[in-house]
C-alpha cells in the first residue's frame, strides 16, 4: 500500500464517520422535536408546530420559497463578489505599499468595527432603492474582513518567497499573481469565510427591514401572521441554502489551498 492509498483510505474512513455520525445527530434532534410536538404535544402547538404541520407547509409554499431564494441570491451573489474583489484588490495594493498602509491603517481600524447592521436604516434613507442599500450593507460586511485578512496575508508572506521572487526579477503583474496572491491566499480565504457567514446574516436582516421578497422577507412576513409552521419551514430552508453555499466554499478552498497541507 503506497502512502497515497493509505491517505486516501483514511480520508474515506473519516468521511464515512462524519456522514454517519452527523446523520445520527440530525435524525435524533428531529425525532426529539417530533416526540415533543406531534406525539406528546408537550410543547405549545401554536409556537412549536409539529413536523406534521411544517412539512406540508414547506411543500405548499415551495414555489414561494424558491422565488425568495432567487430574489435573495440576486442580492447576495453580486454584493458578495464585489466585496471579495474590492477587499482583495485594496488589500493587495495597500499591503504592497507600506507607506500607504501606514497612512490608511488608522482609518481602517476606525471603520472596520462599525457594525453594518447599524447602517441599514441610514443606507435605506440615503440610497435610492432597497436593493442598492441592502447590497451596499452586504458589500461592506464582506469588504472589511476580506480587506483586513488580505493585508494580514501580505504581511505574513515568508521573506524567503520575496527573496526568491527578487532573484527571479519578478515584477508587476507576475509578482502579484505568481507570488503575492497565492502566498496570501490562506489568510484571504479565512477572511472570505467570515465575510461569507456575515453576508448571510446581513442578507436576512436587510430583507426583514424592507424587502418585498426573499428568504428573510418570507420568515418576517409569516411571523407577523403568527404562522409559525411557515416561519420554521423558512428557517429550515434558509439553513439548507447556507449549508449548500458553505459546502461549495469549502470545496473551492480545499482545491485552491491544496498546497498548504502538503508543506
Amino acid at each position: 500500500m503506497t502512502r497515497k492509498e493509505f491517505e486516501l483510505r483514511q480520508a474515506r474512513r473519516d468521511r464515512r464517520i462524519a456522514v454517519i455520525g452527523a446523520s445520527i445527530v440530525f435524525a435524533s434532534l428531529i425525532a426529539l422535536y417530533a416526540v415533543l410536538t406531534d406525539l406528546t404535544h408537550a410543547l405549545d402547538p401554536v409556537l412549536f408546530p409539529g413536523l406534521g404541520v411544517i412539512l406540508p407547509e414547506m411543500a405548499a409554499s415551495a414555489p414561494e420559497l424558491f422565488k425568495g431564494f432567487l430574489y435573495s441570491m440576486r442580492l447576495l451573489i453580486p454584493s458578495l463578489a464585489a466585496g471579495i474583489l474590492a477587499g482583495v484588490t485594496c488589500g493587495l495594493v495597500v499591503g504592497m505599499h507600506p507607506k500607504v498602509k501606514l497612512v490608511l491603517m488608522p482609518l481602517f481600524r476606525a471603520l472596520n468595527p462599525v457594525p453594518p447592521t447599524m447602517l441599514i436604516p441610514y443606507a435605506i434613507a440615503v440610497l435610492p432603492s432597497f436593493w442598492l442599500s441592502s447590497a451596499v450593507i452586504i458589500f461592506l460586511g464582506v469588504f472589511w474582513p476580506v480587506l483586513m485578512s488580505t493585508l494580514h496575508g501580505v504581511v505574513m508572506l515568508e521573506p524567503r518567497w520575496i527573496d526568491n521572487a527578487r532573484c527571479l526579477q519578478l515584477t508587476g503583474r507576475k509578482l502579484v499573481f505568481k507570488v503575492i496572491l497565492p502566498g496570501a491566499m490562506p489568510q484571504i480565504f479565512a477572511g472570505v469565510g467570515s465575510g461569507l457567514i456575515f453576508s448571510f446574516i446581513l442578507l436576512t436582516v436587510a430583507e426583514m427591514f424592507g424587502a418585498k421578497a426573499g428568504m428573510g422577507f418570507y420568515v418576517q412576513y409569516y411571523a407577523d401572521f403568527a404562522e409559525y409552521g411557515k416561519v420554521l419551514g423558512g428557517i429550515i430552508f434558509l439553513s439548507a441554502v447556507v449549508i449548500l453555499l458553505m459546502t461549495v466554499f469549502d470545496r473551492i478552498q480545499r482545491r485552491v489551498l491544496y498546497w498548504t497541507n502538503k508543506r
Binding site: 524567503r160 527578487r166 507570488v179 491566499m185 498546497w259 498548504t260 508543506r263
Partner: peptide, 20 residues
Amino acid sequence: TGPGLDRAMVFQDYSLFPWS
C-alpha cells in the same frame, strides 16, 4: 545594483514556491 538573472540562487529550502 540588485538581483540579476545572471546569478541563479539555490536557498537552503524554499527555492521553489510551494503552491506551484
